[in-house]
Design a protein around this nucleic acid. Sequence first.
DNA 1: ACCCACTGGTACATCGTTTAACCAACATGG
DNA 2: CCATGTTGGTTAAACGATGTACCAGTGGGT
Lengths: 348, 348
Amino acid sequence: MKERPEGAARPTIKAVAAEAGVSTATVSQAVNGTGRISDATRRRVLEAATRLGWSPSASATALRRARTRTIALVVRRPTDVLGADPHFSELITGLEGELSPRGYGLLLHLVADMPQESTLYERLVAEGRIDGAVLTDARADDPRPRLLRGLGLPAVLLGAPARGSAVPGVGLGQQGAGVREAVDHLLELGHTRVAYVAGPAELLHTRLRRTAFEEALAEQGLRPVAVRHTDFTEEAAVAVTKDLLALPDRPTALVFPNDSMAVCGIGTAQRAGLRVPGDLSVVGYDNLPLGRWLHPRLTTVDQQVQRVGAAAALTLLARCGEDVSPAVLDGRPRLVVRESTGPLPTGA
Amino acid sequence: MKERPEGAARPTIKAVAAEAGVSTATVSQAVNGTGRISDATRRRVLEAATRLGWSPSASATALRRARTRTIALVVRRPTDVLGADPHFSELITGLEGELSPRGYGLLLHLVADMPQESTLYERLVAEGRIDGAVLTDARADDPRPRLLRGLGLPAVLLGAPARGSAVPGVGLGQQGAGVREAVDHLLELGHTRVAYVAGPAELLHTRLRRTAFEEALAEQGLRPVAVRHTDFTEEAAVAVTKDLLALPDRPTALVFPNDSMAVCGIGTAQRAGLRVPGDLSVVGYDNLPLGRWLHPRLTTVDQQVQRVGAAAALTLLARCGEDVSPAVLDGRPRLVVRESTGPLPTGA
DNA sequence: ACCCACTGGTACATCGTTTAACCAACATGG
DNA sequence: CCATGTTGGTTAAACGATGTACCAGTGGGT
């Protein structure tokens, strides 16, 4: 609709000022609601602006205000294969839901490893391209909080809530609650030989969940059949499942660190002639949409990534000087019981 | 490493000029390789720049040059539920692979529907936030090419290669080839009662693939048992599968428009007591990583989204005035035969 | 000795906004 | 009638980089 005659340059604040018969300063004040302007002039200016289809140039505003209204989300993807982690779609949805209405944009970058990620932040900050960053995959010894603090870049860390870190953490409380609930569920079903497939050891949530897993078992006087760390790839899921199923005292239940891997695990078990949940119970993590439709439907832990994303956006916006009501993030990860878990096999 | 003493503002070109003992103009020319500067001075300037950890301000450069080095990718997600289409992860990977090394950023936005998407482009252009856009999900009557052309924004349309549209299309040639191959594969296995689950009718590739499907059958003198359009949601996949399996002359093979839906279809069939591929063969589309690990492993069509993304990025960069070698996109969608397809059930 | 070409660099206007400082006009109170 | 506000604007200086037009020096040719 705002289609301009071919080749016509975008209008500037000057054009609007001329159209409305005022100075450019007045236009600026009118659209920003600052300064002292009569209601009548304000209206005139706004009309002129819409008539010309003008919006303030983002570059000029950014230069003047030293604010870009852009947030970075850097995704570290170790291998080319992991790729499709649908986790991020959910996260991005949550973020965008809060950013977009406030005129903020999300700048997405993919990197291979942590050094690359650090360099990228340095560049983005040096170029003044972003106002803040969302950090994912908190590590046990994470270099990013210190780095970003040094660079003076507002950030939030997804995962564990703040722990005296340089940047505030955003996430559901009681990180371990989901896994704990999963274990309790399995125990109730009669399982005693349970194994845990964990994520990369350096990730923070890997630790939290592993601890929760072991504690929940210990409370019933049990110990895990095994705990295996993996790199989150599908290949690893298959390999580790085979490995666990070959154990002398084969586990009757497997707990995975995400749904994709759980699905691989189920496939591997079935391929080995086992029925799920008849012979083996499987629990995932993330509650991907897909899990609802598989056969068997996947029992999993829902950690509400989308809501966490929204909360993270709000926290970050607040740190960027936007006045937003602080995010309240109640709730905790919860087990969603479906069909991939069942009573202990009678033979066992 | 570039950690500046707390509160110190980022250095500007002036600081670098002072450090190197030259004028700001010289600094600019040195880093941009323009103008006539002696090698010695150039080196001195670059050294000074790294010493201070300076990079040209993106905002200032954008303002001056009327170029932001930012590309928009707008994702339309009809419902909240579709969400996790892993398709996009692949696409983004492909795009980023070419954009990032050239200093371009990817600005990601999520919208609900086409009107919103149009408005968004208008805003982004009016604010001068982007240099170009990548359009996905080409529609039969797509308003975006005209719109963006009117706005003067470079763009590429993913999917069918150019067809006299206002923006160049990027995609594998012979769009239908994959589906055609799938049908041939099924026919070879002896199937004659094949049904097709299609995507939303307004999407361009939906048409192309549907046509390919029908033509491939027709060549053997066959007609589809049924063709059903859906909205790409998992729910729809389940519903339509149930529906098709209840048909009087039940199909022995189902072709789906993406892997997520194919998985849902398999689950639904299994739940109905059918074995895959024993009683029913299923073909997907996209070649998601997950499909390799399911039980049964998914037969699907690989359309190399990542490579298409890379090619799209190159085409777009070229239109943005970057001098890149034009993308060559050979190949076509190819069938990947795995385990979800098998010979015609003997009873049928 | 003089003109010219060339090399290597600098001064300055400019991109489109924002904002502090300033000012005209007009009412108000003493 | 004059200092004193108040209201509603304007002027001009940034913000940080780019690029055109200009200039100082050097050396060559005649």
